[in-house]
């Protein structure tokens, strides 16, 4: 599904990713762990196509297509979803309106029929319920005044509704207490399927107790320095990142 070859990325003229190779097959969950500043968030932004993240070398192919030619919204419509570490506040735009606009924009881009208000409402409520997102929250402006847990649940709700082929979760556990973390993880696990791949980016092993990965990569200094099974995460928990690069946290 995702093939990254020798990916070099610079931000503000500084090289952050220095040759990444990564293959994620359909249905797989990959965890990317690493110390602060290792380039984890950069990887997520470059997959989403954020401006200012310049690919200087290498390639990213998604379902056989070269991503470099595609805009941010085109990538989204093609099935790439990024759950933000810090979801943005959009004053005055209700979560409901935002979800509908996003879903219908993607459907339209894919040549599918747009959902009318009634069908959309039914779908949202169905998806929102397991995440403890009630109507009141849906009527509030997106992320404005949301608690940390509410923001992350709203992110998972968006993912659940938009049904991406590849979900990239950037530090989804940050700022969550254990109960909120469980709710979010349950939401994510419910979305695991043989057709959907996920990349879970995290600094701590904690999240991986709840979202159990198939493969774990350690990113350090802009390179993947080690790859292993889920036991690698446990090992890191014990020994820390000290052995994986000088700038360990």
């Amino acid at each position: 599904m995702l093939e990254i070859r020798n990916l070099h990325v610079t931000v503000d003229g500084k090289e952050i990713l220095k040759g990444i190779d990564l293959d994620v097959a359909a249905g797989e969950v990959h965890a990317i762990m690493g110390p602060n500043g290792s380039g984890k968030s950069t990887l997520s932004y470059v997959l989403a196509g954020r401006e200012g993240y310049e690919v200087t070398e290498g390639s990213i192919r998604f379902n056989g297509k070269d991503l470099s030619e595609m805009g941010v919204d085109e990538r989204a419509a093609a099935g790439i979803f990024l759950a933000f570490q810090y979801p943005l506040e959009i004053p005055g735009v209700t979560t409901m309106t935002f979800l509908k606009t996003a879903l219908n924009a993607q459907r339209k881009a894919r040549g599918e029929e747009e959902l009318d208000a009634v069908r959309f409402l039914k779908l949202v409520r169905e998806k929102a319920k397991p995440l403890n997102v009630n109507d009141d929250m849906l009527k509030r402006a997106l992320n404005v005044g949301y608690s940390g847990g509410e923001k992350k649940r709203a992110e998972v709700l968006q993912m659940s509704l938009l049904e991406p082929a590849l979900a990239v979760l950037d530090e989804t556990d940050s700022g969550l207490d254990i109960d909120a973390l469980k709710t979010v993880a349950d939401g994510v696990n419910a979305l695991r399927s043989p057709e959907r791949s996920m990349i879970v980016i995290t600094h701590y092993q904690r999240l991986l107790d709840y979202i159990v990965p198939d493969v774990v990569h350690v990113l350090s200094g802009g390179r993947i320095v080690k790859t292993g099974g889920k036991e690698l995460a446990l090992e890191l928990e014990k020994s820390g990142y000290a052995g994986y690069g000088a700038d360990a946290a």
Binding site: V72, D73, R75, A76, V93, T101, A102, L162
Partner: peptide, 29 residues
């Protein structure tokens, strides 16, 4: 903000629509 726009577009919303959405939010009251 560029961040707001990036966020909307990451959800599949085209640029002009994203601007209209954010401006409509700004005018909601």
């Amino acid at each position: 903000s560029d961040d707001q726009l990036f966020y909307c577009m990451q959800r599949g919303i085209g640029e002009e629509e994203a601007v209209a959405l954010i401006v409509n939010g700004f005018c909601r009251d």
